[in-house]
């Protein structure tokens, strides 16, 4: 094996890696391509036979998704929950991560260690008690209930991500500012936060993305239309025996657009902020 691989000339090796990239690339685009084209097809065409390009392009699926399946309502619900969660979590986590990496106080080391453990508690374990607590608090089918559930896994995650960044950030400027009489809070506001803005943006995008993409808690905690999340709304297309493929694909396309746009806008930050901690799935 080793000898065979070693004997391959450089040019052939380049061809092999190109082939690998092309095949994997095609596998990535395959479902997405058909998601997009199918959303422009009439139902009859979807069910009858394979067509690579819509024979008779239509926007009726989008009209259906928007007017008959409440997609705009679910989107605005999701947007509200995602933005609220992200704002609260970022503030809470930045404060905590600053304290846990920069300040000296008893209990800090234990808490800094605990963050990772809390972050890794399995969601299936939290599902049942969280559901019962939210129901008992009268927060089922409300936005605060959804925000609380999303905060419970976002705060440890974001704190952990920010701690990782702050540890790599040199504290010399801060030290200097403190010696010059700056208070801790002023140095946090004027030095640490501006310097860690790229990490804060990355963390915010991850959290927004996680809330936008969350399905299980959304399914269990909000079943009425007025508070339903987009994930639950879309999965419901599959609930009945009658599969509404066209509107579902159109709805999926609409639902993934904000995430993709956000990602394109912030790609530089996200790729830069890639850390092992962001693995999900």
């Amino acid at each position: 094996m080793t000898q065979i691989v070693d004997r391959i000339p450089e040019s052939v090796f380049r061809v092999i890696s190109t082939v690998v990239i092309v095949v994997l690339f095609a596998m990535i685009l395959f479902p997405l391509y058909f998601m997009v084209t199918t959303s422009f097809k009439f139902e009859a065409e979807i069910y009858s036979e394979l067509t690579w390009i819509p024979r008779d392009p239509t926007i009726s699926n989008f009209r259906d998704a928007i007017f008959n399946f409440h997609i705009p309502l679910y989107l605005s619900n999701t947007l509200l929950v995602a933005i609220s969660t992200t704002s609260i979590v970022v503030v809470v986590s930045v404060l905590a991560s600053y304290a846990l990496t920069r300040l000296r106080f008893p209990g800090r080391a234990a808490m800094a260690r605990g963050v990772l453990f809390v972050y890794l508690i399995p969601g299936s374990l939290m599902l049942i008690p969280m559901y019962l607590i939210i129901v008992k608090a009268g927060l089922k089918d409300t936005f605060p209930g959804l925000i609380i559930a999303n905060m419970s896994f976002s705060v440890p995650f974001c704190t952990w991500l920010m701690m990782g960044y702050l540890r790599t950030l040199s504290s010399e400027i801060e030290e200097a500012s403190l010696i010059d009489g700056c208070t801790r809070l002023r140095s946090l506001w004027h030095i640490v936060i501006p310097l860690s803005l790229p990490a804060i943006i990355t963390a915010a995008i991850f959290i927004f993305n996680n809330v936008w993409n969350e399905y299980i808690f959304a399914l269990v905690l909000a079943q009425d239309d007025q508070h339903k999340m987009i994930s639950v709304g879309l999965a419901n297309f599959y609930r009945s025996d009658y599969y509404m493929i066209g509107p579902m694909m159109a709805g999926s396309l609409i639902a993934m657009t904000p995430v993709v746009l956000l990602y394109i806008l912030a790609q530089r930050h996200v790729v830069g902020g890639l850390s092992a901690g962001a693995v999900k799935g």
Partner: peptide
């Protein structure tokens, strides 16, 4: 640092204790 540290950590700690710790014990 001691006082400020605890003040800054408190919101996150409340979230973790109330929304992770308590449900965990409940489970």
């Amino acid at each position: 640092d001691v006082r400020l540290g605890w003040i800054l950590v408190t919101p996150a700690l409340l979230v973790v204790l109330g929304m992770v710790g308590y449900p965990f014990v409940e489970a």
